[in-house]
């Protein structure tokens, strides 16, 4: 078997573009799913039964469905329900954001619940509004518990973006698989793809470990 590693170099720009799309998918999804998760968590904790019920259903639904299925579902079903034809990128973002928002909602809810009720009362006793108590007292303290989990969600998300390749979003996995089928350099391209993901993901995983150690709650 003769290996032609030059094929990787030849398609370097296409792979680089894929890397950029993968990183873009990760960043944009997180930028949506953090506020999304906070809103869902607050809905869940609210006294309004409709809001908390909706949040519960949303979170349980998207945590219990394979992401790849959500991607297909968003691709086929959303244009008909919503009525607008979204780009593949936007469709991919939607599917990822639905999934990650559900996970973040649980992260934020657990973080908020970990703060003693007395802390809330101390803030209220100073005359703060519920929103001020959340912003000034609860969230900054919950941050220590939330950050490590958000970091590991980030690492998972980075990997999960590869699943939107099935609806032809031009991410790293999609571009590498495309080159593979055009050039038939299967081993070279697939190995290159794995190595690029590894090179990008490894430092992120290590960073997530570092964040977990740094924020470890000592009680």
């Amino acid at each position: 078997m003769k290996l032609e590693w030059s094929v990787v170099w030849q398609y370097r720009w296409l792979l680089a573009e894929g890397v950029l799309v993968t990183i873009g998918l990760t960043i944009v999804t997180m930028a949506i799913a953090v506020p999304g998760g906070i809103i869902l968590a607050l809905m869940r904790l609210s006294k309004n039964r409709f809001l908390s019920g909706f949040s519960l259903c949303f979170v349980e639904l998207f945590r219990n469905i394979p992401l790849i299925l959500v991607v297909y579902w968003a691709f086929y079903v959303m244009p008909i329900f919503v009525g607008i034809e979204l780009s593949a990128f936007a469709t991919g973002i939607t599917a990822l954001a639905l999934n990650v928002s559900a996970y973040n909602a649980e992260t934020f809810r657990a973080g908020i619940n970990s703060i003693r009720q007395g802390q809330v009362q101390a803030g209220l006793a100073l005359g703060m509004s519920r929103f001020q108590v959340l912003r000034e007292i609860v969230l900054p303290q919950a941050f220590r518990r939330i950050m490590p989990i958000l970091a590991s969600t980030w690492v998972s998300l980075f990997k999960d973006t590869s699943l939107v390749s099935v609806i032809a979003v031009g991410d790293l996995a999609h571009n590498a698989l495309m080159v593979r089928s055009q050039t038939f350099r299967v081993l070279e391209m697939l190995t290159a793809m794995a190595l690029i993901y590894w090179a990008l993901g490894y430092p992120q995983a290590k960073l997530a470990d570092w964040i977990r150690k740094k924020f470890e709650v000592k009680e």
């Binding site: 007395g118 802390q119 009362q121 803030g123 209220l124 006793a125 100073l126 007292i137």
Partner: peptide, 16 residues
Amino acid sequence: RRRMGMVFQNFELFPH
């Protein structure tokens, strides 16, 4: 509540 200050049994200082 602005007109009343409250001191709690467990202090409830904000640890951050």
